[in-house]
Design a protein around this nucleic acid. Sequence first.
DNA 1: CTTAGGG
DNA 2: CCCTAAG
Length: 480
Amino acid sequence: MKTDRKQHLIKKLCNMKRQRVDQSIVPGLEDEATEVAHLLAEPKSEHVSRDGVLCFGKDNLEKHLKMEDFSCAFDYGWKINYGGLDSIHGQGGDDLKLEVLDGLLDEVDEVDDIHAAHDISGACEDFLLDIEFPEKHSVLDCGPREGSTLRNSSSESHSPGFSGSSNSAGGISESSIPTVQESNSKNGVLGNMVSCDLHRNFRSKYGCQGPVLDTIRPTIEDVQDLDVSDDDEEPLVSFILSNRKVKGSVKVTKGGTLLRQKRLRKPTRRYIEEFSRNSTTGKNKCLKVRSQEEFPQVPSKSQPRRGRPKKIVPKLELESDCEFSASESEDQHKRTKRSKTACDRRKHQTMWTLAEVIKLVDGIAQYGVGRWTDIKRLLFASSAYRTPVDLRDKWRNLLRSSSAHGHNRREVQNNVKHAVRPLPKPVVRRIRELATIHPYPRVRSSKISSVDYVPSSKQPTTKVAPVYSPARNLRGKNCC
DNA sequence: CTTAGGG
DNA sequence: CCCTAAG
């Protein structure tokens, strides 16, 4: 009987929520919500609380509806259920999330970003899940603000009433607080306990940064354990979890298990080797430096991922180490050298987000191929990583991939989509266009063959050609 | 220092 | 991503 009523209430609530989505404000909902919340809290089944926790991050409303009422509705499924308006807003929300995250990441609210993200909004729909991983990954860069960003954007997606501020990046921080409260009240629908928990988290989050880590981390661990088996079924969940883990300033690329893996993997054999070596030689300085790099908190702007200095520091140490290790065999010495360099240049494979790719493509469209430093300075100025060389490499890869499954088989591409990181079709199209306009040296041959490139068409396409020389000037002028 | 190209 | 050669 209780469950019966519960369901009824949930449906009712659901309807109200839909109303709310449309009308943006429905007085009296809070009361109803509280009532339902009590009912739900009583059974205290595991999944209720879990859902509550998991729903915390993104699309609370969506998830609630999905899990409780529309079990078949997932991902964008729910958008379909809710018709045009919501579809638009939902997409807008996701789109916005992209923009906002990226914008904050770059600390520059460039209009370009918005353009870029907007361009791909259609594509995002398909690739949302794929985007989210890298996207959240990049969130690492903006620790403190990330929380509010996420929440803000999430609420954007289900409450059009707030979408007024969506266009201005400046309004985000302002609107985030009230929005958060909104989210909380929605969360409360499923359980006050959860709500309380969230409130705690929020409070600590907005109050002070320090304690947050300690507060959140245990929660994460708990939820993580619960969630392990559901990871496949609930991609959003993993997304949320990961995001929260990110708040713990731990680098995470995917599911929760990776967290521990990474942590465990940190003291590599090489590291231990070095450790012992250094301790025997009594050179702690080297060790210190290494330990700093071995445990990178986040690729923050203040600590560029790979700076030129890195080259210098190890070199000096190497020299002194050579002096010290006079007794060592040459082979060992050689190995030390190699391991040192390898250690310093360890791969921090920061995945390219779709937004980044689009920015890159935009930049290339603007400045042409080969002006990597300009593109880097103008579009990736705030991305501490991503050297011009990286951009070039990425472009090379993009060319390759775009030409790989180009005109041949779209279906295959769709199949590959799941295996490899897919590239939205519009983006691929742009890449291919750019590739035809200015073929990349050397790769050109394969490129041309696939696009049926005619050399004469390159010059007439003056759209980009003239940019080349102005860009030169720009480079000189551009001091920011 | 920047770019191209190879690994 | 990394490294190196070339301008």
